[in-house]
Write a protein that binds this DNA or RNA. Sequence first.
DNA 1: ACGAATGTGAGTATCCTGTTTATATTCTCG
DNA 2: CGAGAATATAAACAGGATACTCACATTCGT
Lengths: 207, 207
Amino acid sequence: MSTRIAKPAARMRKQPRQARSIATVEAIIEAGAHVLSELGWAGFSTNKVAETAGVSIGSLYQYFPDKLALVEAIRRRHFDHVLSVVREAAAAEKPLKQFARELVRGMIGAHAIHPTLHQVLLDEAPGDRGSRAAHASFQARYLEHYTAAVAQYRKRRKDTETMARVLSSAVEGVIHNAARRNMLDAPELQKQLVELIEAYVSGCKAA
Amino acid sequence: MSTRIAKPAARMRKQPRQARSIATVEAIIEAGAHVLSELGWAGFSTNKVAETAGVSIGSLYQYFPDKLALVEAIRRRHFDHVLSVVREAAAAEKPLKQFARELVRGMIGAHAIHPTLHQVLLDEAPGDRGSRAAHASFQARYLEHYTAAVAQYRKRRKDTETMARVLSSAVEGVIHNAARRNMLDAPELQKQLVELIEAYVSGCKAA
DNA sequence: ACGAATGTGAGTATCCTGTTTATATTCTCG
DNA sequence: CGAGAATATAAACAGGATACTCACATTCGT
């Protein structure tokens, strides 16, 4: 549900030492994710986040030097989560169907709580500062896992990277669309998404 | 490039009568689409749009009662465009491969000028007012065309609607992702997207 | 040339934002 | 316990951006 313990994370104005403050920081990040997902970047104000977290605005600025540091922490937490899902799905050698199932299940799980967070993080939220490198690194590893999975089930070495990109964005598109209509937990949708992955990766042509 | 002639469109404060004002209105809508795609909803300010259009802010408010009416006009124009693409691709009976090719080509064309407009319109831009009905109607017809296409190549009546939804959101996801990286016109990407559509719709299972 | 259509852009009023600071509460540890 | 550090509070600020109006200038159709 939540990450075990606070990481060194992004530069913070002050490291939380007592259990109380750790909970506060966690609450702020969680509330931030909620606000970002619900209101989008346009509605993402520090005051709103603090209010949602049930914490005073002062507490927020005690740990996050500015708005961007906060969004960075949110980004980091979410991306870590998604990355672990993809990694585990693509890890051991397993039948294609099983890979597809685990991937879909994990991805849906990762988007169930804050449905549109992923898109907002990618599209709306600005990513300047030192985050650029971290962001690129995430994207790289993300694609890497997909590529590994594709290569595992596809013999042709050609186009594997493009395939990975197409596959990942297709999956994201379906999940994002389902999230928008509150349809993330429709079993027939999950089934169809699994079938789409299978069909594309297995790569048969004619009907 | 641009739609032939101004439509009655959304409620306007004043109907443009002379050629001059028609051009003005068109320029405003075009600039609006540009700003929306480039800066997102957060950066979509009426002043910015007017400036981009090379028109004074006063002129904008002469034709659009408020910001929402403007975004509504933009939405309408873009959706009409996309809708016509899907309709034409799914129209006559043709081989699956040809359908996929035309769909991909048309969709890419529709997103080439304002790459992220579609997503912004769906996700960020608010849609209250009387637009709700129009929006729903668009979604319905959009899905309708996809469903028709899917039904044409798939015998099983079951799940055709879900399939249409999955297919459309997958395509949108891939295109949106490609647009984000300025990769819309990569031939191998187009090819892979066509193959994804073929593979999924033709519906073969094992490798 | 005259009225109508169209275009202008400085100005306004309002709202909001991120951030600080001075103060109050709660914890740790001897 | 009690002293000092850690943590929490919320009122206030300074600044900026925003949507929108209005009184006036220009250009069109006839």
